[in-house]
Amino acid sequence: MSITEELAEKLLEELNCETVFTIPIFGGIPIAESVVVTWVIMLALTVLSIILVRNLQVENPGKKQQVLEMAIGGLYNFFESLIGEEGKRYIPYLISVAIYIAVANLIGIIGFKPPTKDLNSTAALAVMSIVLIEYSGFHKKGGKGFLKAFAEPMPLLTPMNVMELFIRPLSLCMRLFGNVLGSFVVMELIKQVAGFIVPIPFTMYFDIFDGLIQAYVFVFLTGLFMKEALE
């Protein structure tokens, strides 16, 4: 077996999202790695939240609380300025998604496979986003206004607007998936070629920088589309 073949095999193994276990009901329900890692992330985030949120004080906040407030308040203000007063009720979801994607993209550093490398995960995120976007428009304008909005700015563009309903989640899903998968592949290749110290600057870019940028882009676009739907 040549080195290239070996490399390809290893790479494929890394790329595959394995089924961790199968629930033995209804003929076996497979549970993928991404789902399990998401559980881990959920658990970690929840426990961390409970620990961080303890003893919050209105007056004289500690350093820990100031950092926490800066992070959550900053995210909140960012989304508020993006989607405005009307979209206030969707801000907690956007914050949750931002935190989740950021953590999911960065979790590769500590050895887990990023859940966002699995198409199921990014598709779920994107579908949730488009559902929320359309729901926000529906909630704001009502059934009639929601349908009318498809014929704006002019009836000629209705097919475009209908297509956007599918293009938007697809692009959101594929952008996230492709970026994470691509950076994962590049990182794996680099690790195979030079496994010592050399990957550090690359991991800084591909794992940390790109991961955070993708988290930002995903929630930013979701917020932007939501703002459009609310107009």
Binding site: V35, T38, S96, V97, N120, A123, L125, V127
Partner: peptide, 9 residues
């Protein structure tokens, strides 16, 4: 797993 992910979210 798509469904599980949505539930997770």
């Amino acid at each position: 797993n798509f469904v599980w992910n949505i539930v997770n979210l």
